[in-house]
Amino acid sequence: MKQANRKVIPIQPVPGGNLPPEQRLAVQAAVQANRDQPGNLLLVLHAVQDRLGFVPPDAVALIAFELNLSRAEVHGVVSFYHAFRTAKPGRHVLHLCRAEACQSVGAAALEAHAKKSLGVDFHGTTADGAVTLEPVYCLGNCALGPALMIDDKLCGRVTPARFDQFVADMRA
């Protein structure tokens, strides 16, 4: 057994020690605001994503430490929900509905148009960093399909032409 090459695992690494200050502040603020709520982990994750647009992988250790959870637990929750993203998105996030009601009124064609015109697949971000395209399974807007959501704004009856207009606005 070679002793010299063995790595000594630190007894307790500083949680979130490699997080940029802006991200660390976001996590700390999120924890501060939600620590005493029941089910605080989801609230904290939402607050972090609201502020940063995503949950940085390096934030997991700090969130776990602050809420006295294991890193595994936080990772399990972050990875379970599609809503939480772990990479920085474009300036705007566009959620395209792929559920049955929208599909029956042209969502598939809209999807093809969106991917082609943006030049990205789902989960991708356009080269100019303006738009990230995400699939979503039902926005509850079935009567007005095809539906999509731009950031927090819900839009119905989206045609390829309206889609192009939305994208142009986002890029403006």
Partner: peptide, 25 residues
């Protein structure tokens, strides 16, 4: 509590801490 199920559905996978190796987790 070092282990979790990461992801969901067919993506579900046992993960040690944040998808780390067991030794580093």
């Amino acid at each position: 509590l070092a282990l979790t199920i990461q992801g969901r559905g067919f993506d579900s996978k046992v993960s040690a801490s944040v998808a780390e190796s067991f030794l580093e987790s």
